[in-house]
Design a protein around this nucleic acid. Structure first.
Lengths: 344, 344
DNA sequence: GATACAACTGAAACGGGTTTCAGAGGGTGA
DNA sequence: TCACCCTCTGAAACCCGTTTCAGTTGTATC
């Protein structure tokens, strides 16, 4: 079907009666070429729809203009929002993203990193999976460290190593925003559905939750601190089931992330508990799914475009030998929708 | 920070006292090498964590093991489900996906295709954007045709050209499933929120809707055929607003896709129209967002894993010179949830 | 010990670009 | 007219692997 072999600058050069070097100069614009020859060559390029082989280019350039991205779960709305924004940011800057899905599996994490190193990506962005663990896995640290020695690595999250920059959501300010909002709107009975403390983000939010509650002079009711197994909708349902048995409900609940909050709210409805009439709900991450529910869920937002832009720029800077900032925090904003109400 | 230059097979060869060819043979396993030398080389590979340069490899291999994918909108749940499944399918088969987001912009479509050709992807998958138009844009056809002459192209959707295979959802059977289900459950007053007929999928569904309704002996009420501007949630809201003014409601509505259905249902609720008590709702595409609403929306599902697998396999087959199937249709399934009820 | 093979191995070419280096041609000022 | 400089240009080297081709070495057979 397509048996014609790929044409090369040599073919163009021969037909135009110039040297391959001249064709290359025209392609890259790296030096002046007499207009007459230039036009002859450009004509041929158009005629054959010649496209220079990017692999061959990458061989000499030392830059591939690839950025690798390793993500725990591409189908999760949080990562989806993040890498979607990264694709756009990279594309604006003339880079393309090589995306890997590890499903939080260590073997796949290693495979992805190996693949990216082999492809000489200019830098890589790693998010989720073992990065998020509060207790760092030494094997993983070794992998990160040896990778970073070859290729710049940026972590989307808290960086576990001095040599690696991290760009993370500011969990503490997020919690401050959430609690302050609820307190200002009259809430004094506040609960929290969260996942296991093995996750760094959860641990940080939980500690701050306790601090903020204390500062506001509010009591924390053990019963309203609900630990669920994961970051998914099902975990939210589990939380709601526990809640339905309680004698007294809090007036407001926090959900550790949007998927949990959505599952939580949906199951609450099935138990006849209405949001926000019976209970206000405030979530974290503000992915697009929060505007799909009824009521839409108020959530703490991280401005994914800015988040991604910071990630990608940090990665590119580093790959150009620029200075490394150790940890950047993304400022959160409260995106109020319909799931919180004022208590009188 | 990382000033050590990349090591190559030449470095390894020198230190091991063998030729680069031998190192290459060990790397690829393409020929036997005396055990003693092999061990010496492998030891050095481990010591330096040597990773062969994939770009250099691709230069001789003629295969890059890249598949390009051009998508209209990566943040849309439909494309998200599709390319997520493609990433996984490609990864299982030893390929990686180069993903491009065109935002349905023709210039970006062309840029993406150019980029992919330059990178000598083994094949590319194109979905959304101008592909979906019923009235094909001749410029786009030319682009497709000249691309396909160089690199195998598979269309996720209806193929507009004989030379290009397409893998598409079977819109007609989807509509059959939907109508049959509603009719069996006693519905006789059925409406449809859909987007402009310039889109192929919409046109196909609409024609089949009319045929199916006629076959079931049901009358189509003009008022209940609601044309909205796009495939997004806002369009769904617009549809619901129109509906709220009607004297008589249908007992069931179809939504052209999940985003429209979600927006539709959400706004209906704001108008005090309940799903499924007042009106049943059935959607198309069955992306994950349909299980996030209350009630969860029943939707016609395309089994994205199978869809993606077919796409990726077709692409790879083609790139290996395999035979081309012109058009494959993906069989739909009805995924019943909570948004439809029986009418007595 | 000679012969026939099989198993290994290295030199060199190749893939498709970019870049360096040196030379050629043209223009300028003295 | 000569010296000098600037602009173009091609040959060749390079990037880093793979593959072909032509040995070389080792082993089994007679």
């Amino acid at each position: 079907m397509d048996e014609m072999k790929n044409i090369t600058i040599y073919d163009i050069a021969r037909e135009a009666g110039v040297s391959p070097a001249t064709v290359s100069r025209i392609l890259t614009g790296s030096a002046n070429v007499r207009t007459e020859k230039k036009e002859r060559v450009e004509e041929l390029i158009r005629k054959y729809q010649f496209k220079p082989n990017a692999m061959a280019r990458a061989l000499t350039d030392t830059r591939t203009h690839f950025i690798g991205m390793v993500v725990a779960d591409v189908s999760n709305p949080y990562y989806h929002s993040l890498f979607t924004a990264c694709i756009n940011a990279a594309s604006r800057l003339g880079y393309s993203l090589l995306l890997f899905n590890t499903l939080s599996n260590s073997r796949m994490e290693e495979q992805a990193v190996t693949y990216l190193l082999e492809h000489r990506v200019d830098a890589m962005i790693i998010s989720g999976g073992r990065i998020d663990l509060a207790q760092q896995d030494p094997d993983f640290l070794r992998l990160l460290e040896s990778t970073a020695r070859k290729t710049p690595v940026v972590v989307a999250g808290r960086s576990p190593l001095d040599m690696i920059p991290g760009v993370a959501a500011d969990h503490e300010r997020s919690m401050d925003l959430a609690i302050r909002h609820l307190v200002r709107h009259g809430h004094r009975k506040i609960g929290f559905v969260y996942t296991g403390k093995q996750f760094y983000g959860t641990r940080e939010k939980l500690l701050r939750f306790e601090a903020d509650m204390a500062e506001a002079g509010l009591e924390i009711r053990k019963e309203w601190l609900i630990e669920v197994p994961g970051y998914d909708m099902r975990s939210g349902s589990i939380g709601a089931d526990l809640m339905s048995d309680m004698k007294e409900l809090p007036t407001a609940m926090l959900g550790i992330n949007d998927l949990v909050s959505v599952g939580f709210q949906k199951r609450l409805a099935e138990h006849g508990i209405r949001v926000p009439e019976d209970i206000s709900l405030l979530s974290f991450d503000d992915t697009y799914i929060t505007s799909m529910t009824t009521p839409a869920i108020s959530s703490v937002d991280y401005d994914y475009d800015q988040f991604a832009d910071t990630l990608v720029r940090t990665a590119i800077n580093l790959s150009e030998g620029g200075p490394a900032v150790h940890q950047v925090l993304i400022t959160p904003h409260l995106n109020l929708k319909e799931s919180c109400r004022r208590i009188d």
